[in-house]
Simulated assay, not measured.
Amino acid sequence: MVARHAGISPTTAVKVLNILEQRGMVERRYEVVAEGIAKEISVWVLRVDPYWMTDATASQIRSTTPPAPVLKTQKDIKVPRRFKHLFWNVDLSELNTKDHGPAIAIAILEQDNPHAIAWAIHNLDPEAFAVAALPRRGFTPEMSALASRIARKK
Rank of each mutant, 00 (worst) to 15 (best):
E21T: 14
A105I: 13
K153V: 11
L146K: 14
T140W: 12
L20F: 09
V33A: 03
F129T: 09
A13W: 10
A107L: 10
F87V: 04
K72E: 09
H115Q: 12
I106L: 12
A58M: 10
P50R: 15
L86Q: 06
H115S: 05
A147V: 06
D49S: 15
I117H: 02
G24V: 07
E110N: 15
I121A: 01
R136I: 06
F139M: 14
L134S: 13
M25Y: 13
M1A: 15
G36L: 05
N96Y: 04
K72I: 04
A56R: 15
D76V: 00
N89E: 05
P50Y: 09
A58W: 00
F87K: 13
A133E: 11
I106T: 12
A118S: 10
P126L: 06
V43S: 05
E31S: 02
V14P: 00
G24Y: 08
V26G: 06
A132E: 08
V90P: 02
S148I: 03
A128C: 00
A56I: 09
W88K: 15
P126A: 14
S63G: 12
V48F: 00
N89K: 12
N113A: 10
L92S: 08
L86N: 06
I61M: 11
G138P: 04
H5V: 02
H85T: 03
E35C: 07
I121Y: 04
V90Q: 11
H100M: 05
R4N: 12
E127S: 13
M53N: 06
V43A: 03
R23F: 02
S42Q: 13
Y51H: 10
G138T: 03
N96L: 03
W88S: 14
R29F: 06
H85K: 11
A118W: 04
V131D: 08
P141V: 07
S9C: 07
A147T: 08
E127C: 04
E142L: 12
H115M: 13
E21W: 07
A145N: 13
E127N: 09
Y30C: 02
H100W: 07
S148Q: 15
V70K: 14
V43Q: 10
R23G: 07
K98Y: 08
Q60N: 11
N18F: 05
A130G: 10
D49M: 11
P69C: 00
S148T: 01
E110W: 00
D99H: 08
K39L: 07
A151K: 14
P80Q: 04
E40P: 03
V26I: 09
H85G: 14
H100A: 06
G24M: 09
P66Q: 12
L46A: 13
T11D: 02
K98W: 08
V16P: 00
K72T: 05
A130I: 03
A13N: 01
R149W: 07
I150K: 07
D91C: 12
K154C: 08
E31Q: 14
Q22M: 06
A13Q: 04
I104Q: 08
A132I: 04
G138H: 10
L95Q: 10
R81E: 13
R136D: 05
N123P: 04
F87Q: 11
P135L: 06
L46F: 15
D76Q: 15
D76S: 11
V90N: 10
W119I: 04
